[in-house]
Amino acid sequence: MASIYENIIRPLLFRMEPEQAHDRGRTLLMTMGKVPGLCPMYRRYNQVRSDKPVRLFGLDFPNRVGLAAGMDKDGEFARAVEALGFGHAEVGTVTPQGQPGNPRPRLFRFPQYGSLVNRMGFNNKGAEAMLHSLEKSYPKGKRGMPVGVNIGKAKATPLDKAVEDYLSCFRTLADQADYFTINISSPNTQGLRELQSKAYLRELLVALRDENKAHAKKLGHEPHPLLLKIAPDLSFPEIDLILEVLLDLEYSGVIATNTTIARPEGFPSSETGGLSGGEFIRRRSTEVVNYIYRATSGKLPIVGVGGIDSPESAGEKLDAGASLVQIYTGWVYRGPFFARELAKALRARDNDWV
């Protein structure tokens, strides 16, 4: 199946403008989720369940492979994602109201590097639209895998008002999220990465922690797991500051990493935006994963993201200290059944360690 995709289907898709190809894929996955019996049939073939579910921050993951945020921006096709072999999906990034994102073109392929560059800018339909989509297409309580909601601030919201955007998204989607990821590391919303700094970080994370606890107490259940997604371009002292706050506030984990604004030597384009996929981001994200693992003595669960395009590169993230991995660009280049391939390899790896 992989060879059919890489030799026949991918060349056809790559003749399209990248965002057009993404929109076609989105439509196909949404349709797949609506056809009676289709997802269960695919799930029987693709879903790889570990001998014991991977239990992390109070959730059970059928396998270690997740879909990173950015692919399913509005929570429209998570059912199909599960049927294709993933063990979790992260939807978003979502903002309180819908916004168009940055002008097109804003997504670029670099096949010689196995990379993408994007400057999408949190284009999405808004939190209410995501809520309705998840309720209708893949509701909580009727899922075969966890769904995380990745939340952000609107482009027009100044940094000193950003906290309310994150709280608004949390309040709207709390009943449908299995966990939340706070995205303060995308390079494509001007100023967003400043929220990783000491001037803003603690205020934001305290507000979300307190809102999470209050919501849980009101409904009589455990608080949602809260994760923070960080940039690969931070220095180690900057990462230390973030880790100190996360541990102090008892956050559930960290996602390492988002896309990078750096470029490998000789990169053939000056297009701005975040680089994903390929050797360059693979090495840096693995370095960050391992630094976090060592700096926290393994006390903070890590989801490893960046440059995963093979079982070997996925295993590298786990060896560095990650408990789960997420893919995005690797799925674009390797095809719809790539998650199944990774999950099978990582399950075999887990069994070898037993």
Results as ranks from 00 to 15, higher is better:
residue 146 P to L: 10
residue 208 L to H: 06
residue 216 A to P: 11
residue 171 R to P: 00
residue 95 T to H: 12
residue 168 S to N: 15
residue 174 A to R: 14
residue 87 G to N: 05
residue 131 L to G: 04
residue 107 L to K: 05
residue 116 L to Y: 06
residue 149 V to P: 07
residue 120 M to P: 07
residue 222 E to F: 00
residue 177 A to H: 05
residue 206 V to P: 00
residue 161 K to Q: 15
residue 196 Q to V: 07
residue 97 Q to I: 07
residue 210 D to T: 14
residue 107 L to V: 11
residue 86 F to K: 04
residue 149 V to R: 14
residue 202 R to Q: 07
residue 116 L to D: 09
residue 156 A to I: 14
residue 215 H to C: 03
residue 160 D to K: 12
residue 111 P to S: 10
residue 204 L to W: 09
residue 166 Y to T: 08
residue 165 D to C: 10
residue 88 H to L: 14
residue 224 H to G: 01
residue 150 N to Q: 10
residue 118 N to Q: 10
residue 86 F to G: 03
residue 100 P to S: 05
residue 207 A to P: 11
residue 150 N to A: 10
residue 179 Y to N: 07
residue 197 S to Q: 12
residue 97 Q to A: 12
residue 117 V to D: 04
residue 211 E to G: 03
residue 146 P to I: 07
residue 140 K to F: 00
residue 199 A to H: 14
residue 223 P to L: 01
residue 124 N to K: 04
residue 89 A to R: 02
residue 205 L to K: 05
residue 106 R to A: 04
residue 118 N to F: 09
residue 121 G to N: 14
residue 112 Q to G: 12
residue 118 N to T: 11
residue 158 P to D: 02
residue 184 I to E: 07
residue 188 N to C: 08
residue 128 E to A: 14
residue 102 N to M: 09
residue 152 G to I: 06
residue 196 Q to I: 01
residue 135 E to F: 00
residue 157 T to V: 13
residue 147 V to E: 09
residue 160 D to C: 10
residue 168 S to E: 13
residue 190 Q to T: 13
residue 169 C to V: 04
residue 212 N to R: 01
residue 185 S to D: 07
residue 141 G to A: 05
residue 150 N to F: 09
residue 200 Y to G: 06
residue 188 N to P: 13
residue 96 P to E: 02
residue 164 E to D: 13
residue 114 G to K: 02
residue 142 K to R: 10
residue 146 P to H: 04
residue 192 L to D: 10
residue 142 K to V: 00
residue 88 H to D: 12
residue 102 N to Y: 04
residue 113 Y to I: 02
residue 129 A to L: 06
residue 149 V to Y: 06
residue 84 L to K: 11
residue 97 Q to T: 15
residue 109 R to Y: 02
residue 86 F to R: 00
residue 196 Q to Y: 01
residue 145 M to R: 05
residue 194 E to M: 13
residue 147 V to T: 11
residue 109 R to E: 02
residue 148 G to A: 10
residue 151 I to Q: 12
residue 157 T to W: 01
residue 182 I to M: 08
residue 206 V to C: 09
residue 180 F to N: 11
residue 218 K to L: 03
residue 227 L to S: 06
residue 98 G to L: 05
residue 208 L to N: 08
residue 176 Q to L: 06
residue 146 P to E: 09
residue 126 G to E: 11
residue 198 K to L: 00
residue 212 N to F: 03
residue 130 M to G: 13
